[in-house]
Design a binder for these strands. Structure first.
Length: 296
DNA sequence: AACAAAGTCAACCGCTCTGGC
DNA sequence: AGCCAGAGCGGTTGACTTTGT
């Protein structure tokens, strides 16, 4: 459409970020918050495209990014969500707190799609292939430290493995009218980990016709102002200075008007798992409704 | 030890959507 | 209604690492 590029690429740094650039970006966002990506590089003293800054922050520097290997539970969830949602990585990532769409996309492409294929499942349609595809990849002994070493070698300084379990916040989303939807047609509510129950669980929300649907849709937040059980939506405006305390989870609390309390969350999570278990039979309709609820 | 092949993933690219004017 | 800026998304690329020979 002939639209001008988001920034002049002349004289801008490209490629891997340096620790100094990371620091500059982090400090600027901590001081001024996210947004205004186009003007941010100049203000922060970065010779980077705003888009690049946004990507770096979203996929790497955010304090709530979960580091470390994808757990088997997350594996399973990704596969199931992919079956429901397809390649809508941001939606899937929104259900895996602390994981980014880029990370999940990469993981899918490099691990899960191959695994599914080797198990005789079409990774695109999730239907059974006529015969399992032999995994032609070399059988390489994987060392658990491989990635860490690599990242270390590349001097990716912010890749620090969290020592303690964290309560992770979902990706921030654009701050828009509460009545409008983001482009992916789904509210990206703060969610709690499905594999990390101390962070919450799956929700259950009533639909307009009163049907109880399993859903991740509940509000949560790290902001004190949002912890009064209001029905307002938290739309990912982070006060990053708060995140230092995320480790103990003290500033993360389910905000749903539908339910509150840790036990409820666990029950709801179990409910979700139950539906997933039964997805092949009578609960398929219910699961479909769940999928739809994700897309609303 | 050297090389090639394969795997990984951060970063980039092009496109679309939303909201403001 | 049309234009534009800002933002976000999914697909792709390419530098780098790891492993096998």
């Amino acid at each position: 459409m002939g639209r001008a590029p988001c920034c002049s690429k002349v004289g801008l740094h490209r490629g891997p970020w340096t620790p100094r650039e990371d620091t500059l970006l982090t400090k600027y966002i901590q001081a001024h918050g996210e947004g205004h990506w186009r003007s941010l590089p100049k203000k922060a003293g970065l010779l980077r495209c705003g888009k690049s800054c946004r990507l770096r922050w979203m996929n790497y520097l955010r304090p709530d990014i979960k580091r470390g290997n994808i757990t088997p539970d997350e594996d399973d969830l990704i596969i199931r969500l992919h079956a429901l949602l397809g390649n809508r990585w941001s939606l899937i990532a929104g259900r895996l707190p602390g994981r980014t769409d880029n990370e999940i996309k990469n993981y899918w492409n490099t691990h899960l799609s191959k695994r599914l294929r080797s198990q005789g499942t079409d990774p695109n349609t999730h239907s059974k292939l006529s015969e399992p595809v032999q995994d032609r990849t070399r059988s390489r002994k994987k060392t658990s430290t491989k990635n860490n070493n690599r990242k270390h070698n590349k001097n990716k300084t912010s890749k620090v493995q969290p020592v303690k379990p964290k309560v992770h916040l979902p990706k921030p989303i654009r701050v828009t009218s509460l009545l409008s939807l983001p482009r992916n047609e789904s509210f990206e509510f703060n969610t709690a980990s499905t594999t990390n129950l101390e962070g919450g669980g799956l929700g259950s929300s009533g639909t307009e016709d009163g049907q109880q649907l399993p859903s991740y849709v509940f509000n949560g937040g790290d902001h004190d102002d949002d912890q009064n059980g209001t029905a307002g939506f938290l739309v990912g405006v982070h006060d990053h200075h708060d995140h230092d305390d995320l480790v103990n989870g003290s500033d993360f609390e389910c905000q749903s008007h539908v339910f509150t309390g840790e036990n409820s969350l666990e029950k709801l999570y179990e409910e979700y798992l139950q539906i997933l278990k039964n997805e092949d039979d009578q609960d398929q309709v219910q699961l479909d409704s769940f999928a739809e609820s994700l897309l609303i």
